[in-house]
């Protein structure tokens, strides 16, 4: 082994040691912080903490305030942006196709269903937003989506229960005959026959 080789080996060892120390210096605080959290939660959930909480409420114990705040029933919610965008220009797929179909059914979109959110779809979304009194952004945010869902539901409801246009064209052959029904409220408690119920 030449001195150069030795030097190189030494350098490699040092580099390895350096890497190891770096990893250690990052992981130790991370692990200990995580551990502290686990312990904190365990304490917060334990009956001791509840007792401590009760004690804290009885006598304003300074050391117990921390525990109290930890055991306080805070519902952790995933913080979402004020009105996150669900679909926007550039998106593709079945949801975009459904959006185009919906806008088409509502009369805001008159082109082929492509499944690609382009400028024409964006313009249709803007028109829909304007009609609904929303800020016309051309992107489908949650508020726009809710408005679209409700508009589609109202559209379908009108079609089903609106004047004269009730559902027709039963697929049933009509060859069999079902009997008429008798009464609501008349109970037949002891009859051991079939019962219909929701599942």
């Amino acid at each position: 082994m030449t001195p150069d080789d030795k030097k190189l080996a030494k350098l490699a060892r040092e580099r390895k040691m350096h890497r190891w120390l770096t990893t250690l210096s990052w992981s130790v605080p991370a692990v200990s912080f995580g551990g502290m959290f686990t312990i904190w939660h365990a304490i917060a959930k334990s009956p001791v903490a509840t007792a401590a909480k009760a004690m804290a409420t009885q006598s304003a114990h300074t050391s117990a305030t921390h525990v109290t705040s930890a055991s306080g029933r805070t519902t952790v919610r995933t913080a979402a942006a004020a009105d996150p965008v669900v679909l926007q220009q550039g998106d593709k797929g079945s949801k975009v196709a459904a959006l185009q179909q919906s806008l088409s059914a509502l009369g805001f979109f008159n082109y082929a269903i492509t499944g690609t959110y382009g400028p024409i779809t964006a313009a249709a979304v803007e028109a829909f937003q304007a009609a609904e009194g929303l800020t016309p952004t051309g992107a489908v945010d949650e508020r726009t989506l809710t408005a679209l869902q409700q508009a589609m539901k109202a559209h379908a409801t009108r079609a089903l229960t609106g004047s004269g246009s009730s559902s027709s064209g039963s697929s049933s052959s009509g060859s069999s005959s079902s009997g008429s029904s008798s009464g609501g409220g008349s109970a037949m408690p002891s009859f051991p026959g079939p019962v219909t119920s929701a599942s």
Partner: peptide
């Protein structure tokens, strides 16, 4: 056949009966 409709309010008594000769009843 009388097909009894199960009580959705929690009682044991059926809330009605639908008479069926040939057909289906769903709830």
């Amino acid at each position: 056949w009388p097909v009894r409709v199960a009580n959705p309010f929690g009682g044991a008594e059926p809330i009605g009966t639908l008479a069926v000769k040939r057909g289906g009843v769903a709830t």
